[in-house]
């Protein structure tokens, strides 16, 4: 028996449980419940009750990406600094929450931000009064940032770490001040990491499920929650088809992001995590 045959169970399993299910999504997305071809499922997007959710998802995912970049870049920059002895352990500490169940992380966030939670107790103790944040877009944004920040830090850190320090020294020798070194040398050289990080944050943020529902007391749905909601609409005979068309759109959006990523960062220098 040739050794290559050992890959048969692998090929079959992945075909049956990774490829075929996606074909089912495509099939349902383009058919009516009777099995006839249609593109009407995609027109559901334009309905006001759905369009609002989709726009909110895109908006919050963009905000989340921006906040992660603003927090993540300096973090990665500090971590990649020369002679920073604690960098290794800090990187592990930053990555650690990422491996913790998404639900548990969000649940923890919920506890912290609650009207009667620790944050408000602390604010009151400081005499700053209470703030109402749970249930608002602010809380959802915080939850998203909390969940996806590590995805921004890691690729930028990897790129900065690999950067040739002599290039910076050359710029300095040629009379560049530190600010110009940063804007003209460091940032341009870290673009692959930034693109990687932006994609890695934006993709899961825009498809996130449960985070928003939990942090907004069920008031604010995002695209991921919308898919769940549609599939559970037992009164709607089209629910599988419409749900599939939404899922397919989501998948296409992700594939476009990945294509974009490959184009900007073809050798995945950004050290993409997967």
């Amino acid at each position: 028996m040739k050794r290559s045959w050992y890959a048969t169970p692998y090929a079959l399993w992945m075909l049956l449980f990774a490829v075929v299910p996606l074909l089912f999504v495509c099939w349902y997305a383009f058919t009516t419940p009777d099995g006839a071809f249609t593109t009407a499922n995609f027109r559901e997007f334009a309905k006001p009750r759905y369009v609002g959710v989709i726009l909110r998802s895109l908006k919050l995912a963009l905000y989340c990406t921006a906040v992660c970049l603003v927090i993540g870049y300096p973090t990665a920059w500090f971590l990649a600094g020369r002679g920073f002895n604690h960098a290794q352990s800090l990187v592990v500490l930053i990555l650690l929450p990422m491996w913790m169940n998404l639900l548990l992380r969000t649940y923890a966030m919920m506890t912290l931000l609650d009207d009667n939670g620790v944050l408000n107790a602390a604010l009151q103790a400081l005499g700053l009064g209470k703030i109402h944040i749970i249930g608002t877009e602010g809380a959802v944004l915080m939850g998203l940032v909390y969940n996806y920040l590590p995805f921004m830090v890691l690729p930028i850190y990897t790129v900065l770490k690999k950067m040739d320090y002599s290039v910076i020294e050359a710029a300095e020798d040629l009379g560049c001040n530190p600010l110009r070194v940063f804007t003209r040398v460091v940032i341009p050289m870290s673009v692959p990491g930034i693109v990687s990080g932006v994609t890695m944050v934006f993709m899961p943020a825009v498809t996130s499920f449960a985070i928003s529902t939990l942090l907004s007391n069920g008031k604010l749905r995002l695209a991921g929650d919308l898919i769940d909601y549609i599939f559970n609409q037992s009164s709607n005979p089209n629910r599988w088809n419409i749900g599939s068309s939404f899922s397919l759109m989501m998948l296409v959006l992700i594939l476009i992001s990945i294509g974009f990523l490959r184009k900007v960062d073809p050798d995945s220098e950004g050290g993409g995590m997967w």
């Binding site: 992945m14 449980f17 990774a18 490829v19 075929v20 299910p21 996606l22 089912f24 999504v25 349902y28 993709m203 899961p204 498809t207 499920f209 991921g224 898919i227 769940d228 599939f231 599988w240 749900g243 599939s244 899922s247 989501m250 998948l251 992700i254 990945i258 997967w274």
Partner: peptide
């Protein structure tokens, strides 16, 4: 790479449909 890049929600929904 397919299951690693497909959003979890799409993976979940696709398997459920099948």
């Amino acid at each position: 790479y397919l299951p690693m890049t497909t959003p979890d929600i799409v993976t979940g929904v696709s398997l459920m449909l099948m």
